[in-house]
Simulated scan of single mutants.
Amino acid sequence: MGYDSFKMMHLLGVVLLVGNVTVTSIWKLYADRTRDARIIAFAQRLVTVTDWFFTFWGILLLVVGGYAAAWTAGMDPLRDSWLVWSEVQFVLAGVIWLGLLVPIQVRQARMARGFAEGGAIPEEYWRLGRRWILWGLVATVPLVGAMWTMIARS
């Protein structure tokens, strides 16, 4: 595979990752606003499904394609400062996602299974939902920063 193929793989990964992060947060917010336990439970389940399907594979394509494109083009992704800065921002977003957002999602998903058939939604679900949105926005900042660094440089 050549540089263009790896770059395409990298860009597809970016689209899958950033698209899922953006769309998932919006439709989860709208589902939560209905206050309908069944809709919320369904949306919460889809947060998990889409994270595995789009976010996981998006990250994989982004990383493999990015490193392969850099090495094919004769760059050193572990030494070229603009690439390293992009990687640091990407890793920071990932640390927030794995350290804060995934545990919140898991707790909300467990709760949602309990109220999926129309049961009462516990206050903790709403509190966690607010934290999920807040930290999701925080995690998006370095992700967008990494995209900007890559676009401004290439």
Rank of each mutant, 00 (worst) to 15 (best):
W85F: 12
E87Y: 15
L78A: 14
G99K: 09
L61F: 08
L78S: 15
R45L: 02
T50P: 03
A93D: 01
F42L: 04
Y67H: 10
A73C: 08
L61V: 10
G65L: 04
L62N: 07
W82E: 03
D80L: 03
V84Q: 01
T55Q: 06
L92P: 09
L100N: 13
T72S: 11
D51F: 13
V95D: 01
A43M: 06
F42G: 11
D51E: 11
V91Q: 07
W52G: 04
F90R: 15
A43V: 13
P77E: 04
V88S: 03
A68R: 05
T55S: 09
D76Y: 09
P77H: 11
F42R: 04
V91Y: 12
F53R: 14
P103H: 13
A73Q: 10
W82K: 03
Q105T: 14
L92S: 13
T55Y: 07
A93C: 06
T72C: 02
A93Q: 02
L100F: 09
R79L: 07
F53K: 05
T55H: 06
A69S: 14
R79Q: 06
A70L: 13
P77C: 14
T50R: 02
P103Y: 07
L98S: 08
A73D: 13
V64P: 02
V102E: 05
M75H: 02
P77Q: 03
F42P: 01
